[in-house]
């Protein structure tokens, strides 16, 4: 049922009727499948991709590389949990390379993010260093390009 999930991943508002038409399935079957995916957590939630800058909001994002000392028995999970519980933290991932955790933080201003790093993040036990990169311009996110699509170049009628 990968096709149902792929449609919803592209358009969370696709109705069961539309999904049924697109996949050639029964509408009731589609509803049943989706309910199953919701219950099992395959579908985590439904959301929209919003260009806040175009809306007029000025939001500041920073990518922060964090080096931490893992804990015996808990590895990186405990420190990751302590970080992701802050609502301003949009994502947290354990990565390979020179640092351990890569997090994305959202704030209303550079100052707000700077305060978060200085007061909350850097002062956590086991956090050894932070390396903050402010986002300057967003080109593409989760497969969505933040620019106008090019016009259809095709002739109106062709054999």
């Amino acid at each position: 049922m990968r096709d149902i999930l792929k449609i919803l991943e592209q358009d969370a508002r696709a109705t069961n009727g539309r999904i049924a038409a697109l996949t050639g399935r029964d509408e009731a079957e589609v509803a049943r499948e989706i309910e199953g995916y919701e219950k099992s957590g395959v579908i985590r939630r439904y959301k929209a991709v919003i260009d806040w800058e175009r809306f007029g909001d000025e939001r500041v994002y920073a990518f922060i590389d964090v080096s931490v000392t893992p804990e015996r028995g808990a590895g990186f999970d405990d420190i990751a949990r302590r970080i992701y519980r802050y609502p301003e933290v949009r994502s947290v991932a354990l990565v390979s390379g020179g640092h351990d955790l890569r997090i994305i933080v959202e704030g209303a201003s550079i100052r707000e993010i700077a305060d978060f790093v200085a007061e909350k993040l850097a002062t956590l036990d086991r956090v050894n260093s932070t390396n903050t990169h402010f986002l300057l311009k967003k080109y593409k996110e989760d497969g969505d390009v933040f620019a106008e699509a090019d016009a259809d170049q095709r002739l109106m009628v062709a054999p």
Binding site: R154, M156, V157, A158, P159
Partner: peptide, 25 residues
Amino acid sequence: SGIRRFFDIATQMEDVISLGVGEPD
């Protein structure tokens, strides 16, 4: 080609939905 005439009319119109294109979109 018999489709040439339709091409000429269609290109002069606004808001045409073309189902006449023989190539991928």
